[in-house]
């Protein structure tokens, strides 16, 4: 990790230190720091954890052990869009399994997997508090409730990787 002078998208040490400074240099800010790292870089890399540990004066294993405890923190790269499907009782009773199957059919990936183009990661999560509109999924921060399997392709289309020239997936 050398210092960074371009618009690189991998975390460089200065960026990480800036995040630590922003959140506060104490152990109790570890989770806010990890949230921020993920927001900036999509996931929390081993290198980022090492820098955070050094900055906070705690062990890397502690940072890593803490990060891996929480399901919303990713220590490995994820797809550009993260689809979360709830399979807790309220959603389960309303047919979340069928929704799950529809997503798998649409994207060709099982929960826990990422599409080859890196556009989607699909995961089954515990209750998201959307029981009033069960079955529900979240795509990134967007909520979709009262779902039917038929609605899935249209929803996913909104997040489809673009095929235009920019190559950015706009």
């Amino acid at each position: 990790m050398k210092s960074c002078n371009s618009d690189c998208c991998v975390p460089c040490e200065a960026d990480i230190v800036a995040i630590v400074d922003k959140c506060g240099r104490t152990e109790c800010n570890l989770i806010p720091i990890l949230h921020e790292l993920q927001r900036s870089f999509g996931y929390i890399s081993d290198e980022a954890m090492e820098t955070v540990a050094a900055e906070l004066g705690i062990t890397v294993s502690q940072v890593h052990g803490t990060a891996t405890f929480y399901t919303l923190l990713y220590t490995r790269p994820q797809g550009k869009n993260i689809i979360k499907i709830c399979d807790s009782p309220p959603c389960h009773l309303q047919g979340s399994k069928a929704i799950q199957a529809a997503i798998t059919k649409a994207l060709g990936i099982e929960p826990g997997e990422t599409t080859l183009d890196g556009n989607f990661t699909f995961e089954v999560v515990s209750c998201m508090g959307l029981c009033g509109v069960a079955p529900a999924i979240m795509v990134n921060d967007d909520v979709y409730g009262n779902l039917t399997a038929e609605a899935i392709p249209e929803i996913l289309d909104k997040y489809a990787a673009c095929s235009c020239c920019c190559g950015e997936g706009c």
Binding site: E27, L34, T66, Y70, L73
Partner: peptide
Amino acid sequence: GAGAYICGEETALLASLEG
């Protein structure tokens, strides 16, 4: 929070708040 039902348990919540 960062995704852990257990953190609704008050002592686990404290641990989480402490990083």
